[in-house]
Design a protein around this nucleic acid. Structure first.
Length: 110
DNA sequence: TGTCCGCGGGTGT
DNA sequence: ACACCCGCGGACA
């Protein structure tokens, strides 16, 4: 896309409004939890745009910062993962589970 | 399980 | 304007 078009369409970091909505929703998913593509679509008020959500996450320009691996299918299976084989996606989710357990275990009383 | 179809947004032409 | 691609969802067998 041309530079002047980016300016005209108000694209921040070259991302569309829709993509920002998806990323902004995804980044709020708590550590150790998951949500479905459908859930994300509903959050941004576009419940039928589930496939578009997947496309947006696939092109997530901020890996690690935006936890796209926490978004899975509504039937509980993993769905795709752009950061490598979907095995990696599961490993990340397992890791986060253990982190949460660790945080609970060693929580400091205040 | 597997298959099939509808779906909305992004991209290229 | 058009065609095509998708990290999906739901229905049905």
């Amino acid at each position: 896309m041309e530079k002047h078009n980016l300016i005209q369409k108000n694209l921040f970091f070259g991302l569309t409004n829709f993509q920002w909505q998806v990323l902004a929703t995804t980044v709020k998913i708590p550590l150790g939890e998951t949500r479905s593509y459908k859930w994300v679509a509903q959050q941004i008020g576009n419940p039928k745009a589930v496939r578009a959500v997947g496309q947006a996450l696939r092109r997530n320009p901020f890996p690690v910062i935006i936890p796209c691996h926490r978004v899975i299918k509504s039937d509980g299976s993993l769905g795709g993962y752009a950061g490598g084989p979907s095995k990696k996606k599961k490993e990340l989710l397992d890791l986060e589970q253990r982190i949460v357990q660790g945080v609970k275990k060693f929580k400091i009383k205040n």
